[in-house]
Every structure is written in structure tokens, then in C-alpha cells.
Design a protein around this nucleic acid. Structure first.
Length: 419
DNA sequence: TCTGGGGTCCTAGGACCC
DNA sequence: TCTGGGGTCCTAGGACCC
């Protein structure tokens, strides 16, 4: 059996852990730059705030319902996520961390366990130790575990937050209940096409023939179908090493000069380098992109990206910044109002097992240098040591007007208890 | 005025090889 | 008139996820 454990309204729940006065009240969390709604408490969903809603369009609704608005506090969410995952990892030796608020556990050899009780135990411990509410779905395949999780979340009282699909009868009932567009792996495009041929529920989808599904949705769709039928097709993916790493941002205003963009690209490249070093990888290629604001139909639009194959694998900030700058020079065009840019590194090698190159190679002196920089930044705070090409005056800043304290990751922000 | 960020996997088609 | 067959690698782009 697989268990899918999912934190309920995760970011909103994290904010609420340290603000119990907000229990029962609508909460939303905004994306970077306080742009869009990226998380909502149940109360916020109930007053009709959709996922992805632009904050400025919903200001009035927020006021009407006294919605508590938070800027994204990823330091807090990341730390809370680690705590939840640490607790859950005790419940099975095999775990896949699927996202910041979700993980799969493989329950192999648990035949003699009462899985309902086991799941309720997880819920109790996670709630008691972290304050985060979770829902659990258990079933013989990953996709069905997703379905079961949805039922647990939708009917918390009837299920105690744990739902198990362990019989043909339950499987069919669940699939007839689930709309096809709500199936994990069926997005907007596929559901549009499926709906057009009369496929409305997950059950309808499982009644299609294999050839047809494969033709329409490729091998991915076919695997999905089999998993829904109860034939285990997807297994845990336990590798923690990322295959690409990105740092991208929208700007708070439009940038028009090369210098402004170059500073951003340098900072993004250096951030990618840091993340690479954290997982002990070097990258062999890098992409830089810049684009104007697509929402502004009144302004001339420009959007380009460029992929650069590096002459040698590296994770040195200095080298990656150099290559990223060269890439930017190739795509930058004067006369546009840029709104967003980013650097993505990909094609990794393990840092301790690098292919030697004949003519060019990375500067080996950078290895201890980068280690020292990482250590100092860990000790004295992020970005204490920067490259001179990054903005040392820190003029650039994200809009974060409603940022909550870093309760669990900064000693200065730790909560005070008045007895 | 304002509209996020970070990932994964798969496929088709081009370029190239012998 | 007629123009092989079997591969690999790379890239762009689509679709999806949270």
C-alpha cells in the first residue's frame, strides 16, 4: 500500500500555528512581491477567493471579510515542512518527498497493521508536535492514494482525516465521485479533450481503451489509467538530487537598462551556484531568460531565452556569473521595459566525480573559496559575502508588506510567552 | 500601478553517424 | 521510373505538478 500525506492549506496553516487567534478566520498567503494568492485557509476558500487571484483585484473582498493577508514566508514554511517530514519518516523506511507539503510512504509488509489507526496516529502526532493539520489517503497505487487523500480532506469528520481505498467497491465508488479534471496528472488540456468525448469522471476515464489513451495522452496517460484501475504502475521516486535549479523573479518596477538587468542576472546566477553546491552538483549548462510584462498590452513585448553549454562543469559563483553575463549580453535589447528575468542551471554532474576536459577547466582555487563563502554566509547571515557585481547596497527589494516573523529560523523572531 | 516561483517527464523532429 | 537502413544525440515545446 501507498500512503499519501498532505498538509491542509499548508502555508496558511503555518501562519496560524503561531497566531492561534486566527483560527476560524480567513487567511491568504501571497506570492513574491505580494502578487497573487498562493494559499488559502478553508474560510478564505469559502468566501470565494480563487487560487492565483491577483491581490490588487481582491482588495475589496479581503476588507469585506476581514481576510488576514500574509506575504510568503518561505523560511518559515520550509522549516515547518522539515519538521513534519521528519515525524512522518518514522512511519515507514520508504518515503518520497513529493513537494513542500506532501509525501508518499510505502507501507510494504504492513499487512497486520490496522492502517486506519496507523494513519490516525500520524495525524495526531504531527498535529501535536507541529500544529499542522494533515490528511492521509491510503491505497494500493499512488494515484489512488491521491484520490483517497482527496476524500479524507473533503470529509474530515466522516473519515477522521484518513481514508483507505482497499476494495474494488470503494475504488469504483471513489472514481465515480471524482471529476476527471481533478485526477492527479490530468490538467486543463487533457480534461478539455476528455470532456468533449463525454468523459466526465475518473471512472469514465478508466473505461477508455488503452490504445486510445496512449494515442491521446502518451505513455504518461496510460500509466495513469492503470494506476487508477488499481494496477501499481508508479513507484516511489526516492532520489533527492534535483535535475535543474532555477532562480527567477519578477521586478517590483520595470527595468530598462542593461546594468539593472545584469545585476539581477548576476545575483540569480550566484544564487543558483549556491543551491548547486548545497546538493554537491556542478552544472554543464545554463539558461538565462528575460521578458517584458505580458499583461501590459500597451507596451512593446520582448521575450527571449538562451541556453549556454559550459566548457566545463562548475558550481563556482564567479564562473557561473561570468557565463550568465555573457549570455545576457547576447539576448539583451535596448528599448524595452523588462519585468522578469531568471537563471536556470541544468545538466548536472556530481562535484566529486567530474569529467576532465582537455583544454579548459574550472579554476580549482574557487573550490575552497566557495566553501569559505558558504560557511561565512551560514554563520553571519545570508548574503553577507557577495560578489561585487551584485548590488551591495541592496537597492533591489521585494514587496513584502505583510511578512510574518521567522518564528522558527531566527532567534530574534522567536515567540515570547507571557505567563 | 499591480498579475509567483520552482520543478518533472515525454515526444517529435532535426542533425548527425556508419 | 527507380534514390537504404539503422542508429544516437540534442533541443524545443507541451503537459503536468505543487
Amino acid at each position: 500500500m501507498f500512503a499519501l500525506i498532505d498538509c491542509n492549506n499548508f502555508y496558511a496553516s503555518c501562519e496560524r500555528v503561531f497566531r492561534p487567534d486566527l483560527n476560524g478566520r480567513p487567511i491568504v498567503v501571497l506570492s513574491n512581491n505580494d502578487g497573487c494568492v498562493i494559499a488559502r485557509s478553508n474560510e478564505a476558500k469559502a468566501v470565494g477567493i480563487p487560487m492565483g487571484a491577483p491581490a490588487f483585484e481582491y482588495e475589496k473582498l479581503f476588507q469585506e471579510h476581514d481576510v488576514q493577508v500574509f506575504s510568503a514566508n518561505f523560511a518559515l514554511y520550509g522549516d515547518m515542512s522539515n519538521r513534519v517530514i521528519t515525524i512522518l519518516s518514522d512511519y515507514s523506511p520508504e518515503m518520497e518527498i513529493y513537494s513542500i507539503d506532501e509525501c508518499f510512504l510505502k507501507l510494504k509488509g504492513f499487512d497486520l497493521f490496522n492502517l486506519q489507526t496507523y494513519g490516525e496516529g500520524m495525524r495526531y502526532k504531527v498535529s501535536k508536535w507541529t500544529g499542522i493539520p494533515i490528511s492521509i489517503g491510503i491505497s494500493p497505487t499512488k494515484v489512488l492514494a491521491k484520490v483517497a487523500n482527496r476524500i479524507a480532506k473533503k470529509y474530515p469528520n466522516e473519515t477522521q482525516g484518513v481514508y483507505i481505498i482497499d476494495s474494488e467497491e470503494k475504488r469504483v465508488k471513489a472514481l465515480k465521485w471524482l471529476k476527471v479534471e481533478d485526477v492527479w496528472g490530468i490538467g486543463r488540456q487533457h480534461s478539455k479533450r476528455l470532456s468533449a468525448i463525454g468523459v466526465k469522471t475518473a471512472f469514465d476515464f478508466t473505461q477508455l481503451n488503452d490504445e486510445f489513451v496512449k494515442k491521446q495522452m502518451a505513455i504518461v496517460g496510460l500509466r495513469l489509467k492503470h494506476d487508477l484501475q488499481g494496477i501499481p504502475t508508479l513507484d516511489l521516486e526516492e532520489t533527492q538530487i534535483k535535475k535543474s535549479i532555477a532562480t527567477t523573479r519578477s521586478f517590483e518596477t520595470n527595468y530598462t537598462t542593461y546594468e539593472q538587468l545584469a545585476e539581477r542576472i548576476n545575483t540569480f546566477a550566484s544564487s543558483c551556484a549556491e543551491k548547486l553546491r548545497k546538493q554537491n552538483s556542478c552544472c554543464n549548462s545554463l539558461m538565462v531568460f528575460i521578458h517584458t510584462n505580458g499583461h501590459r498590452k500597451d507596451l512593446p513585448q520582448y521575450s527571449r531565452n538562451i541556453v549556454v553549454k559550459l566548457p566545463f562543469p562548475t558550481s563556482s559563483s564567479i564562473e557561473l556569473v561570468k557565463f550568465a553575463t555573457q549570455a545576457l549580453q547576447k539576448i539583451f535589447k535596448q528599448g524595452y521595459a523588462y519585468k522578469k528575468a531568471g537563471v536556470i542551471v541544468q545538466d548536472f554532474s556530481q562535484a566529486d566525480n567530474l569529467q576532465q576536459t582537455l583544454f579548459e577547466s574550472r579554476d580549482k582555487r574557487h573550490i575552497p573559496l566557495m566553501q569559505t563563502i558558504d560557511k561565512l554566509n551560514l554563520l553571519f547571515g545570508q548574503q553577507k559575502i557577495r560578489l561585487a557585481s551584485q548590488d551591495t547596497k541592496r537597492v533591489w527589494k521585494m514587496k513584502q508588506q505583510k511578512l510574518s516573523p521567522h518564528y522558527t529560523t531566527n532567534l530574534n523572531d522567536i515567540i515570547t510567552i507571557n505567563l
